[in-house]
Every structure is written in C-alpha cells, then in structure tokens.
C-alpha cells in the first residue's frame, strides 16, 4: 500500500508540476499574445489563407 501511495503521489506531483510549468512557460513566451497570428500560423506562402487544400495535386505538386 505504501508503494501505491508513493506512486500515486509522485504521478500527481509530476503531472501537476508539469502542467503548471507548461502553462507558465506558455504565458511567459508570448503564447497568449497576438492570437490572430497564432491562428494563421498553419498557412504559408504556398498554401495561403483563402486557398482550399483538398485538391492538393493540382495546387501544390504540379509544376
């Protein structure tokens, strides 16, 4: 039982500290700022906003 409680406590501590660390890292590394840019970060010059991508061959692979 002692082993089990120790395991549970270690998992709880690691999980909580990990989550808090990730959250504070996000807060101090501009992850919660300029959110519009974050939403647009999945687009690039070849697949820009306004261009549907489910017709990839004609759009991106043919020269």
């Amino acid at each position: 039982m002692f082993v089990a409680v120790t395991v549970i406590l270690i998992v709880m501590l690691l999980g909580s500290v990990g989550a808090l660390f990730a959250f504070s890292w996000a807060a101090t590394h501009q992850q919660f700022e300029n959110l519009e840019a974050a939403a647009e970060s999945i687009f690039d010059a070849d697949e820009p906003i306004g261009k549907p991508t489910d017709n990839f061959i004609t759009d991106s692979h043919e020269s």
């Binding site: 989550a19 990730a22 519009e36 939403a39 999945i42 687009f43 697949e47 306004g50 549907p52 991508t53």
Partner: peptide, 30 residues
Amino acid sequence: YYLIPKIIGRPIHSYYLSVIGFWSLAFFYA
C-alpha cells in the same frame, strides 16, 4: 483544428477560445 482550417483555407474562428478550451481540458478533465 488543423484540417478544417487547412481544407477550407480559413483560420479558426477564435484562437482565444481554442486556448481556453485546451487549458480547461488539461486542468480539469482528469
């Protein structure tokens, strides 16, 4: 969250809401 915006070529409606959604799931789902 990746495929819907990529396919239709439009950023997600509100990134702000997606952040709230992720962190509330992370902190309270367990």
